[in-house]
Amino acid sequence: MKKLLQIAGGALLVYIVIVMGIAVIPAIDLSKTPPGPGVKPLTALQAEGSVVYAANGCAYCHTQQVRPLAEDKVFGRPSAPGDFSYQTPELLGSERTGPDLSNIGNSKPSDVWQYIHLFDPRAVVPESVMPNFKFLFHVVATVPPGETAVPVPAAFAPKQGKVIPTQQAKALVAYLLSLKQTPIPGYTMNGGMGGMTSAAPATVPAPTAAAGGGYSYDAGKGQSLFMANCSACHQATGEGIPGAFPPLKGNAAVDADDPTLHIHTVLHGAHGVTIGGVAYSSVMPPFADQLSDADIANIVNYERSSWGNHAKPATAAAVAAVRAKGP
């Protein structure tokens, strides 16, 4: 019996000591991590949404941790300890089959996009392998007062009736849109590209003067940046989603010789605009902080020269000039 006590008791004791040191005591300390600047607790609706998120296992494919690696900067700044003060249960995740969602409220701020994407991911991202979440929606013959139908593209919409979100879908989208990284003073935004390039020198040539001259437009880079940042809403075809996201093909601002409005929209985003006589309620996010002048010029020029558009190209200097004027 003595031998058994020595082995089992000894091994148990050693284990308890190690577990206290590596897990429990650090966890006690880390549980007291104060919230970062601007990090707020979830509202009741958002909290309800985070339960829907966890119940349906969203975190098995979507992380909520941006690593301090160049490859992660597309998702935002590196996650900071204070970002998680109100996140219990933690949803950092262990796999990234789909993109990180730490900053999805900033990068896809349109609730309309979120609803269409949940209803059928392939309606907005054709290559997506995410399951549809149609069980979070109702299909009704007539939209009840106070509800808004989701403008699902015809090819993906039910043959009869209108799609309206359930309470669970509303809570989930409220939660997703709450996922916004807050700026931390002195903590560089990942890559810091916006800050680096936005200080426009006084000698920036006027856009019109530059447009006539030579410029370098990298079509491959433009296309890849467009696919990464723009095609989720405006679609690879440039045709947008009728009633939800405006087309860029034949869009007056995109196809105009003066690129100022086009550049301004990419830099600072837009909402509640009317294009081609159609009013769009969706929100477009600003890209000023994420993309350099050269990247925005590439995107803009890709849009200005694709799908039958034939507008004069813009230069990085023109982007810098619009950026310097502010929103």
Partner: peptide
């Protein structure tokens, strides 16, 4: 001890 980052450690 399982709040936020504390829970991540666990």
């Amino acid at each position: 001890y399982q709040h936020g980052l504390g829970q991540v450690a666990i």
